[in-house]
């Protein structure tokens, strides 16, 4: 007796983000750092920021220090950062 079983897995929603853009280089551009201050990666992140500033000599640096290591940063704040910098790095840790 053949049994027809319904698949419980849903389709994946397409991302609402705009299409990705490519950059020709990072030198002399403005950078944003979004860091959640997770204790496991504070040392690593400090070195990452130092490395980016040394290697790519950004014309401007903006930083967002997340108040909550797990909750998403308010979208409006991220949107403001995105409007003001050429690229941004987001720091997690787990």
């Amino acid at each position: 007796m053949v049994i027809a079983v319904y698949n419980p897995v849903g389709e994946v929603a397409q991302s609402e983000s705009v299409r990705a853009t490519t950059m020709t280089g990072l030198n002399g551009r403005s950078v944003g750092f979004v860091f959640n201050h997770h204790p496991a990666v504070t040392g690593l992140w400090a070195e990452l920021e130092k490395g980016v500033e040394l290697d790519f000599r950004p014309v401007g640096v903006q930083r967002i220090a997340k108040a909550n290591i797990s909750m998403p940063q308010p979208a409006a704040q991220l949107a403001k950062l995105a409007a003001e910098v050429d690229y941004a790095l987001g720091g997690v840790g787990a």
């Binding site: 007796m1 049994i3 027809a4 079983v5 319904y6 698949n7 897995v9």
Partner: peptide, 20 residues
């Protein structure tokens, strides 16, 4: 299951349980 259709056939109840 992303590759599976919405309905999948199993030959009997035991096979259906194993399918899951």
């Amino acid at each position: 299951a992303a590759a599976l259709p919405h309905i999948v056939e199993a030959e009997d109840l035991e096979a259906a349980v194993e399918l899951c």
